[in-house]
């Protein structure tokens, strides 16, 4: 699994481990963020049954403090696991790429446009950075936590209510999966056009070095 992650998101071994950690952190944070709902559930129950009296205060006070503390701690950990580790990993990735470039045969540089190469190193690295710090752990964490909590809710509450509130998630996924082909295609086209623009846009820069009548023919 670690190897697959490494390959898929261009990570080092450490980076893949970090990403798994980040996903776990997001999952835990998400589950903790659902705890307030539990306390509020008790509150409504107490209100409806008329049992909201003074002797419930210790329960709610302790519960609230514990949950708030948990929220603070898990958010802190998630921050470390996502943002901090990402930036460490990004340096490693860029250096590895640079090393790799150095070892390529000379002919490669004659054939490849330098604009493409630098766009690759810098732009893609920045993209991967945002992806691995924001989207990927968030998404995976969200899926795991929602699945865990959703399934366990079926055992506790009225299954019809659970179904009513969770049907959106599978439906959303179906939409995303069916559309992802089209979206990938669009993204591929977009980046092809971008590279073409890059190359064409480089031409004026090249032209500037062309000795002619003071750039007038441009």
């Amino acid at each position: 699994m670690i190897e697959r992650l490494q390959h898929k998101y261009a990570l080092s071994g450490q980076g893949a481990l970090d990403m798994i950690k980040a996903c776990i952190c997001v999952t835990i944070t998400n589950i903790v963020l659902m705890m307030p709902a539990g306390i509020l559930y008790c509150l409504i129950k107490d209100l409806l049954e008329g049992t909201l009296t003074g002797d419930r205060i210790p329960f709610y006070a302790a519960g609230s403090v514990i949950v708030i503390l948990l929220i603070a701690v898990t958010n802190f950990l998630q921050y470390n696991a996502t943002f901090l580790t990402t930036y460490r990993e990004s340096g490693v990735r860029r250096t590895t790429l640079a090393e790799r470039l150095r070892k390529l045969p000379l002919s490669y540089f004659g054939k490849k446009n330098i604009a493409d190469l630098t766009t690759n190193i810098m732009g893609d690295c920045a993209q991967i950075e945002t992806a691995s710090s924001h989207w990927i752990p968030e998404l995976i964490g969200a899926v795991i936590s929602v699945a865990l909590v959703g399934i366990s809710m079926f055992f506790v509450f009225d299954w019809r209510m659970v179904l009513a509130s969770f049907w959106v998630i599978p439906v959303a996924f179906v939409i995303i999966i069916t559309c992802s082909g089209a979206q990938k295609e669009a993204a591929r086209k977009n980046s092809a056009v971008k590279l073409a623009v890059c190359r064409r846009r480089d031409q004026p820069f090249d032209l500037l070095y062309v000795p002619d009548d003071g750039g007038k023919t441009l």
Partner: peptide, 18 residues
């Protein structure tokens, strides 16, 4: 962390209000 904790602590205040 502070920001995330604050905005997620609303539930405690609802309990208080109740």
């Amino acid at each position: 962390t502070g920001f995330m904790t604050c905005i997620n602590a609303v539930f405690a205040f609802i309990v208080m209000a109740a």
